[in-house]
């Protein structure tokens, strides 16, 4: 949230700050998607980059959604944070590059974001590697790397 914080201090945020009225419709979109998720299990993704935000609006949205119980950090191609908001099923996924600049921010409405789950191909690979390790009967430390990222 480094850049939105910077924006907040630079542009005076008046009572008219959420003028593009993106906040309310976006929250409605999330509400609809949540309903959909609980009824049919259908998931939904919102790309925040595709919405024209007024200064301070994105911060306002994040502030309104709050933070919930889970906060995970993925470390690949730079950092990514996966946060469940105060609203169960609403996740905020922020991808950073290696210079810790934001590459993209998504709101996912799902029971668990796909990127958080262990990946099928890698689970199979892990099983094979574990088997290989056991049959060689020579324990090494490298194989667990992929699963140790959660904090």
């Amino acid at each position: 949230m480094n850049f939105t914080d910077a924006t907040r201090s630079r542009v005076e945020i008046s009572a008219e700050a959420d003028l593009t009225h993106n906040v309310r419709p976006l929250l409605h979109e999330i509400r609809h998607a949540l309903q959909q998720l609980s009824q049919t299990g259908e998931t939904h993704v919102i790309d925040l980059r595709r919405i024209p935000m007024a200064p301070g609006e994105e911060a306002r949205i994040l502030e309104l959604l709050g933070e919930g119980e889970i906060k995970a950090t993925l470390t690949v191609l730079g950092r990514s944070t996966i946060i469940e908001t105060a609203y169960a099923g609403v996740w905020i996924i922020t991808h950073y590059n290696e210079s810790d600049e934001i590459l993209g921010r998504f709101i996912e409405i799902t029971d668990a974001p796909a990127i958080l789950k262990s990946q099928k191909e890698e689970i199979a690979l892990a099983a094979a590697q574990l088997f290989k390790m056991l049959s060689a009967d020579q324990p090494t430390k490298e194989e667990t790397r992929n699963d140790s990222d959660q904090s």
Partner: peptide, 11 residues
């Protein structure tokens, strides 16, 4: 990794 690829695809 596969997660990295997913991140790559999303961005």
């Amino acid at each position: 990794s596969r997660r990295g690829f997913l991140k790559f695809c999303a961005t």
